[in-house]
């Protein structure tokens, strides 16, 4: 589905990303984990098409894609427009794509239940909790029906309890809407709990050093004290400390 080929990226003379190659299949959930400054977010910006790489290309189903065409990108901040209510924030992506107001409203009504937002559609962003704001941002990304979603630490600013609730909810939502997802995170637990594959990056320059396939059957019971989970976490910590 997504082919990331020989991506190199420099910021002035500093090499930020070096020879990034990654193939991601349709419906796969890939977590990218790595220390700060290893270029994870830059990689997502490149995949989204916002940043141009020095060399290399991103192909989706064998083709280069235009901005916003097949890929939705959700950043760490919810980026809700403070002057729009929940409904109008959620429909922003569709509005940009030129859909009619009635189509957008119908779609929001259809999706809002799954996102637990049906009661809040008229609320303004500042009237919502952090968790709810994040759900609106998810809805804005999901509703445009792009098959690929890029998530840049979307739960990074939330407290542990809200985060844990959202993990469970996210798994349900993503399995229902069957998206291909690339998640960038600092949180090793989150990376393992959500993904089919964990990609570990190192810094100076940013590069992929290891990949782990996750046994979903074991992880799906969310037992973070299982031997499998603990061993996996230890291995990733070891990779990250190199």
């Amino acid at each position: 589905m997504i082919k990331i080929k020989n991506i190199n990226f420099n910021f002035y003379h500093e090499k930020i990303l070096s020879e990034i190659n990654l193939n991601i299949s349709s419906g796969e959930f890939v977590s990218v984990i790595g220390p700060s400054g290893c270029g994870k977010s830059t990689l997502l910006n490149i995949i989204a098409g916002i940043t141009k790489p020095k060399t290399g290309e991103i192909l989706v189903e064998g083709k280069m894609v235009n901005l916003g065409d097949k890929i939705s990108y959700m950043q760490q901040k919810d980026l809700l427009l403070p002057w729009r209510n929940v409904s109008r924030n959620a429909g922003l992506g569709l509005e940009i794509k030129g859909f009619s107001e009635s189509y957008i409203q119908d779609k929001i009504s259809l999706y809002s239940k799954d996102f637990g937002l049906e009661k809040y559609l008229d609320y303004m962003p500042h009237e919502l909790s952090g968790g709810l704001r994040q759900r609106v941002a998810f809805l804005r990304s999901v509703i445009v029906d792009n098959p690929i979603m890029l998530l840049d630490e979307p739960l990074g600013s939330l407290d542990a309890i809200t985060k844990s609730t959202l993990h469970e909810w996210l798994m349900k939502v993503f399995s229902k809407f069957s998206k291909t997802i690339i998640l960038v995170t600092h949180d090793i637990d989150e990376a393992i709990l959500l993904a089919n594959r964990v990609v570990v990056m190192a810094t100076n320059p940013g590069r992929i050093i290891k990949e782990y396939l996750i046994d979903r059957q074991i992880v799906d019971n969310r037992d973070v004290t299982s031997n499998y989970f603990i061993q996996l976490k230890k291995d990733i910590i070891k990779d990250l400390s190199i």
């Binding site: 916003g68 939705s72 940009i96």
Partner: peptide
């Protein structure tokens, strides 16, 4: 204007005119 907001608009494939009307003016 928040650079991340601009990125968000860009990631949705927004034109410059759409960004002007929906992000910059408000």
């Amino acid at each position: 204007v928040d650079i991340d907001m601009i990125r968000m608009f860009n990631s949705h494939g927004s034109t410059k005119l759409q960004m002007y009307k929906k992000l910059y003016i408000p």
